[in-house]
Simulated scan of single mutants.
Amino acid sequence: MAQSTSDIQKRSDDKRGVKVKGIKLHVDTIALLERLAEETGESQAAVVTKALNMLAESIKK
Rank of each mutant, 00 (worst) to 15 (best):
M1T: 13
A2P: 13
A2G: 14
A2V: 15
A2Y: 12
A2S: 11
S4W: 00
S4E: 03
S4I: 02
S4Y: 08
S4H: 07
T5D: 09
T5M: 11
D7Y: 11
D7P: 00
I8H: 07
I8G: 01
Q9W: 06
Q9C: 13
Q9T: 14
Q9G: 05
Q9D: 15
K10W: 01
R11M: 11
R11I: 11
S12G: 04
S12Y: 10
S12M: 12
S12V: 07
S12N: 05
D13H: 11
D13A: 12
D14N: 12
D14H: 05
D14F: 02
D14W: 04
D14P: 06
D14L: 07
D14K: 14
K15D: 01
K15R: 15
R16F: 06
G17T: 04
K19N: 09
V20I: 15
V20T: 15
K21C: 15
G22L: 11
G22Q: 10
G22N: 14
I23T: 11
I23Y: 09
I23Q: 03
K24C: 03
L25H: 05
L25K: 03
V27F: 11
D28K: 12
D28G: 02
D28C: 00
T29Y: 15
T29P: 01
I30W: 04
A31K: 10
A31D: 14
A31N: 14
A31H: 11
A31S: 14
L32K: 14
L32M: 15
L32P: 08
L33Y: 07
L33S: 05
L33A: 05
E34N: 15
E34Q: 10
E34I: 14
E34H: 15
R35N: 09
R35M: 08
R35L: 11
L36R: 03
L36M: 07
A37G: 07
E38K: 12
E38D: 15
E39V: 13
E39L: 10
E39G: 04
T40K: 14
T40Y: 02
T40R: 11
G41Q: 03
G41I: 07
E42H: 13
E42I: 04
S43N: 08
S43Y: 06
S43V: 10
S43D: 04
S43C: 06
Q44Y: 03
Q44C: 14
Q44M: 14
A45N: 15
A45C: 06
A45T: 12
A45H: 04
A46R: 07
A46Y: 02
A46V: 01
V47K: 00
V47E: 01
V48W: 00
V48K: 00
T49W: 08
T49D: 12
T49M: 06
K50G: 07
A51Q: 03
A51V: 08
A51G: 01
A51T: 05
L52H: 00
L52G: 00
L52A: 09
N53F: 01
N53R: 12
N53E: 09
N53A: 09
M54H: 09
M54V: 08
M54D: 11
M54P: 00
L55K: 06
L55F: 12
L55A: 10
A56I: 02
A56Y: 09
A56C: 02
E57N: 02
E57M: 12
E57Q: 10
I59W: 05
I59T: 02
K60A: 08
K60R: 15
